[in-house]
């Protein structure tokens, strides 16, 4: 871990044994040199890190305490007025509720489908590349492409979804135009789009389970299902923790497909919190207010993140 060359020259001459001052000076000079070299390596990243993460993070706090407008007007200190306004703003609360609801209804299928897909593909059936292509390819597509395809499928008059419903004798649905149904439609598109990522994580974990365990179980006479429940699923515990944490954090950041599939508009039941930041800042021009909502969103992420860590690590300790 340490710079071994600098260490050697720093440690070798012990100043207490050798009264000569010179080696100490060389040692400190070598250490100075080491520091400079290290900072040379770090500088490019640190400059970008401070400019594009630390500074916006700090400046955002200041903005959230002002009435700054996108037009350049305002900018006076208003204390915590933006925060108190946000906390009593019903639109902010519904957008948080929509975000949490979406996180719940998207995470469950995104984890379960991924697991089933990976288990099936991992049985070694022929056509491996085709399965990977089908399940993973959508993940590579841009959100706009996904949105265009699914807006077409969900089109109430001529979309494929309603054509299918009619074929099996059900009533057509106005998928994206009905309150509460809109967020479910967005969830369906999202599951199709991003399940491939979780699928790959599960597949990698499955292929990491040592064959030896299965062979030992077979010697003991374990059948297919026994092996699944006693070896495979328990071994997938750690990766499931990772997949769930990543998925929840990703779902909380919903914006692209929700904004696009509602055609840039929004409904009371579909608008996620990130879209409200966007609307407050770039449609309403209220940068101060939008900054305050950004910090409430950030707090939400941190709270959910900590909550998950606590629950999942406790569960792991128990088992």
């Amino acid at each position: 871990m340490t710079d071994t060359a600098a260490d050697r020259s720093a440690v070798a001459p012990d100043p207490q044994v050798v009264p000569d001052e010179r080696p100490v000076v060389t040692a400190s000079r070598a250490r100075m040199r080491g520091q400079l070299i290290a900072w040379g390596f770090l500088a490019p990243f640190m400059v970008a890190f401070i400019m594009f993460v630390i500074w916006p993070l700090v400046h955002g706090v200041w903005l959230s305490l002002t009435d700054q407008s996108l037009t350049g007007a305002g900018g006076g200190f208003v204390g915590t007025a933006n925060y108190s306004e946000a906390l009593s703003d019903p639109v902010m609360w519904t957008s948080i509720r929509n975000t949490l609801w979406f996180t719940l209804i998207s995470t469950v299928p995104l984890v379960l489908f991924a697991l089933v897909m990976a288990l099936l593909v991992n049985t070694g059936l022929p056509g491996q590349w085709l399965w990977r292509l089908s399940f993973f390819m959508p993940f590579l597509l841009a959100s706009t492409v996904i949105s265009q395809i699914w807006m077409w499928i969900f089109n109430p008059e001529i979309g494929a979804a309603n054509a299918l419903l009619e074929r099996v004798g059900l009533e057509p649905i106005a998928w994206l135009q009905t309150p509460h149904m809109d967020i479910i439609s967005i969830t369906i598109a999202t599951v199709w789009w991003t399940v491939g990522f979780n699928f790959l994580l599960y597949l990698a974990a499955l292929q990491n389970i040592p064959d030896l365990q299965y062979e030992a179980a077979e010697v003991d006479g374990a059948g297919r299902w026994r092996k699944l429940f006693s070896i495979t699923l328990p071994q997938l515990g750690p990766v499931t923790v990772v997949v769930v944490i990543l998925q929840v954090l990703a779902s909380l950041k919903l914006f692209d497909q929700a904004y696009q599939m509602m055609d840039g508009g929004s409904s009371e039941t579909s608008r996620p919190i990130v879209q409200y930041i966007f609307e407050a800042g770039f449609v309403g021009y209220r940068f101060g207010y939008a900054s305050a909502i950004s910090y409430i969103f950030f707090a939400l992420i941190v709270i959910v993140g900590i909550f998950q860590m606590v629950i999942l690590s406790r569960r792991r300790e128990n088992s």
Binding site: F49, M51, F52, V53, I54, W55, P56, L57, H59, G60, L63, Q68, L70, L249, L252, K253, F255, V274, I277, F278, G281, F282, F287, A290, S291, S294, Y295, F297, F298, I301, V302, G305
Partner: peptide, 17 residues
């Protein structure tokens, strides 16, 4: 630790910058 910071929460100050 900065991994926890959602980029979406930085759009306002970043745009300002």
């Amino acid at each position: 630790a900065s991994i926890i910071v959602p980029p979406q929460a930085l759009i306002i100050p970043l745009y300002y910058q």
